[in-house]
Amino acid sequence: MTVVFNIQRFSIQDGPGIRTTVFIKGCPLRCLWCSNPESQRAVPEIAHSDSLCNKCGHCIEVCEVNAISLSNSGVRINRELCTECGKCIEVCIPEALKLYGNDLSLEEVYQVVIRDRLFYQNSGGGVTISGGEPLSQDDLVAELFKRCQDTGFHTCLDTSGYASPKAFEKVLPHTNLVLFDVKLMDPVAHLKATGKSNKKILRNLKLVSESGVPTIVRIPLIPGINDSEGDITDIASYIKSLDLKKIDLLPYHRFGEGKYKMLDRKYSLSGLSQIEPGRVEELANILRSSGFECNIVI
């Protein structure tokens, strides 16, 4: 089963040109700052948007397990009771309830991807697979990339790096660009911030660098977690030892916080302020002065 939680057309920050990004649901990591909480579990999930809810109560009436209740701001779903049957979504007229995640076949994904082929041709774009962790579905990704390359689309893999080396070996031959996330060098700090040690990730980055596929290392800059000069230069010296030259910095933002509410989950970094643009520029300049091509993703 391949659950896709979003296929974003006119995606413009996940590789060159105009792209379509396919987001695969399910991630082995639980990064504290995750801005796509709906990407974490590998199954479809129901979400509720308070701003669209008109509090009519139809969803409460049709729910067979009494998982839905009404609060001042909108509905709440008891996740221990909810079976994700989707009946509430059918009766929600303002479309405040929605399902994150559809089980799609390779063919269904490909049919969406090829719609924008003219835009890819005019912009040097193509398809990006992101997540969640796309390599949890390595067979689908490899086959989709192969078909896309045969048609002449650029292919880009956006990965957390946490996957089996075999999955990488399967997908890399059909990949034009890898966006590889590195968060922290210290394994203990990494475990604390993401739920997993970084050993596997760093080993895989070496494997990717040896494959010769163009690779950009992406560092999400999270205040108080990895935004010190030491954190960044530690990562930089590892990347340099692998002969990789490109780094993207992704400054922390809180755009995903609303989605935690929609999924009745707690956002553990609530109240953390965004990182100063001047500070980001400073860190980028440190990387540039040690020979990296460093881009701040805005």
């Binding site: 920050q13 801005s35 948007s49 701003s51 755009f255 609303g258 509410k261």
Partner: peptide
């Protein structure tokens, strides 16, 4: 923002 797209209505 930061390579990330969000529906405005979904934001806090």
């Amino acid at each position: 923002v930061g390579g990330y797209s969000a529906y405005f209505v979904d934001l806090t």
